[in-house]
Every structure is written in C-alpha cells, then in structure tokens.
Simulated scan of single mutants.
Amino acid sequence: METLNLKISGMGSAHCVGVVKDIIVKQDGVAIENIALGQATVSYNPEKVKPETIIQEIEKMGYKVDQ
C-alpha cells in the first residue's frame, strides 16, 4: 500500500466530507487513513488503482484536488 495526501477545495461542510468519503471507499484497493474538511489521506494498492483515478473520481463530483 502507498499513501496519497490530497488537498481538496470545495469541501465546505460535513456533508461534503461524507460525499468524498463515499467516493473514496467505493474504489477497489483504496482505504481512508484520515479525512476532514479540505483534506484527505488515503492508502491505495498501486496494482489496483492509480492516484490519478482516485483524483478524477473526486473531481467528477465538483471538487478540486491538489497533491
């Protein structure tokens, strides 16, 4: 497993945290280490998912992600 630290713009409430959490946990090979307003730290299996895929899925919901 590898770790990915994400800065996420557009998360303004606990609801947004829940939306991002749901997006992350639905991806095969990804686990949440920590999530809060504006940031998330995830572990992922590089044999199952690429960091770019994780970011794309979050951005599809209208959030902006930086590493």
Rank of each mutant, 00 (worst) to 15 (best):
L37T: 11
I54K: 00
E52H: 05
I55T: 04
S9K: 13
T3Q: 08
V19S: 04
E2T: 07
Q67E: 12
N5R: 02
V49H: 02
Q27H: 07
T53I: 06
E57S: 14
V49M: 04
K64E: 13
M1C: 00
A36L: 02
N34Y: 15
M11G: 03
M1H: 02
E47W: 02
V42A: 01
P46I: 00
I32C: 09
I24R: 02
T41H: 03
E57C: 11
E47T: 06
A31G: 10
E47G: 01
P46G: 02
K64H: 10
V17K: 05
I54E: 00
A36P: 03
T41Q: 11
P46D: 06
I23C: 13
L4C: 01
V30I: 08
V25R: 14
A36R: 08
M1D: 01
K60N: 15
K26S: 15
I58S: 05
E33D: 15
S13Y: 12
I55V: 15
S43K: 14
S9I: 07
L6Q: 05
K60D: 13
I35D: 02
K64I: 13
Y44T: 04
K7T: 14
I54A: 01
G38T: 07
V49C: 02
E59Q: 13
Q67P: 10
M11K: 07
I32P: 07
M11I: 07
V25A: 09
V49T: 09
C16H: 07
M11W: 04
C16Q: 07
D66T: 11
E52D: 13
K26M: 12
G18D: 13
Q56G: 03
L37R: 08
I58Q: 04
I58H: 04
G12C: 09
M11F: 01
S13C: 15
G10L: 10
Q56W: 00
D28K: 09
G18V: 10
K50Q: 14
V25C: 08
E52L: 05
M1I: 01
I24L: 14
V20N: 03
H15S: 14
Q39L: 12
V25H: 08
S9M: 11
E47H: 02
E59G: 10
I8L: 04
Y63G: 08
S43M: 11
V42T: 04
T53N: 10
K21S: 15
Q39T: 11
A14W: 09
M61Y: 07
K48L: 10
K26A: 13
P46L: 00
Q67N: 13
Q27M: 15
G18F: 07
G29E: 06
M1P: 00
M61C: 09
I24P: 00
E52Y: 00
V30W: 00
V49A: 03
K64L: 11
M11C: 06
